[in-house]
Amino acid sequence: MIIGFRLNGQEVTARVDHPASLLDVLRDQLGAYGSKNACEQGECGSCSVLLDGELVCSCLVLAADAEGSEVTTVEGVAPEGELHPVQEAMNRVGAVQCGFCTPGFVVAAVDLFERNPHPTSREIKEALAGNICRCTGYGAIIRAFEELAGREVR
């Protein structure tokens, strides 16, 4: 079947032959490689996208269910050539190592700061508890978002 949705503001269509996930369609058919596949079980958050403004693991969403919706991936959180404040904050404090978790953290943090521009440390951690990072130990990620939240940095 052919499905259509808006990806980062652009109309796209994709052919879905088998019960493919939204993540598979993004990566393999639409060439949007920003969202990562690290577990395909909803356990790591690397594939996080906004589906009609709601934060989801795209590996758990059937592509067919994205029909007619607005999908925002890491590639779409900031205009071309610019960084979202969330990305800037992570860049400044060294919150990126291998970077494989980074797109997921960016999308999850964009969602958090849209809902709550001044989260507490605890709110930051709870919002990001579904995102696994194997490299940083999360310290720099927490510092980045505490700074962005305008809180005193430890």
Partner: peptide, 10 residues
């Protein structure tokens, strides 16, 4: 490589 990784372009 921070910016390309943050943008999903790496």
């Amino acid at each position: 490589d921070g910016v390309p990784k943050l943008r999903g372009e790496f």
